[in-house]
Computed example of a mutant assay.
Amino acid sequence: MGEYRANKAGINAEAQARIHSKYNDDIAHETLEWIKLLTGEPANTAGDADNLFSVLKDGTLLCKLVNAIQEGSVKKVNQSAMAFKCMENINAFLEAAKKLGVPAQETFQTIDLWERQNLYSVVTCLQSLGRKAGNYGKPSIGPKEADKNVREFTEEQLKAGQHVISLQYGTNKGQQSGITFGNTRHM
């Protein structure tokens, strides 16, 4: 579908080039290997953008992935190659990923994958889903999520902090003469 569009020009072309420059073949390869570990597909796990696009474009593998993490996440996977059916699969994957704990800011728009506009955000979403997969007893990928570090302070410790003057209020240490700010006044 995207091959029938005119090429972007000017500032739009620069913005698209910046988006494409973020894409990393190694991270995409790691992501496809993780998908293969969970679903048994795809046969080719090369991390180049062409392969990632061809493997994920119809959304069926994405739906299999979330169903492998949590059974029944996507009820109906469309096998049709029609554009709207494929985009329904991608959208069903995105909804299931959000339910599995992927933050909304780490997801992508359906059009980012379908028209190959931003494969970087697709990989980011899959990496985020990979971190959440550990919560469901599945192998995870990417950096480990931070754990909560709750701290408890006594009333005495809290009151001790009220007697400290913050540096935002200035200091009485040192000498203030000779400090100039801006230009001097000429008379």
Rank of each mutant, 00 (worst) to 15 (best):
F181G: 01
G161Y: 02
A9V: 12
N44K: 07
L38T: 06
I27S: 01
E145I: 10
Y120F: 15
Q127R: 08
I69H: 00
K173Y: 10
H186L: 12
T180I: 04
F153L: 10
K36N: 07
I165R: 15
D147N: 02
N51F: 03
A83F: 06
S121W: 06
A96S: 11
I69Q: 02
L32V: 05
E3I: 12
N24D: 15
C86G: 01
A92L: 03
E30G: 00
Q16C: 09
Q79S: 13
G101F: 05
V122T: 03
A83Q: 05
E156D: 13
M1K: 04
E41G: 10
V102E: 03
F84L: 09
P103C: 10
E155D: 12
V122P: 01
E33F: 07
N44H: 02
C125S: 06
K159M: 03
Q162V: 13
H29N: 08
D58N: 05
K8I: 05
F53Q: 08
G59Q: 03
K76T: 12
T45E: 02
Q70F: 09
Y4Q: 12
K76F: 09
T184I: 14
N89F: 00
E88R: 09
T60C: 07
G142Q: 03
M82D: 14
I11A: 15
A97M: 07
Q109S: 11
G170T: 01
T39L: 07
S140P: 00
R151F: 00
P42E: 00
Q105K: 15
Y4M: 10
K76A: 10
I35Y: 03
L113H: 00
L167R: 06
A28H: 03
P42S: 01
G174V: 06
R116T: 08
E30V: 05
K75N: 11
K138R: 08
N24A: 14
D112E: 06
Y23M: 09
G142E: 00
N67D: 09
F84C: 04
Q168C: 02
V66C: 01
A68C: 09
Y4D: 09
F153D: 01
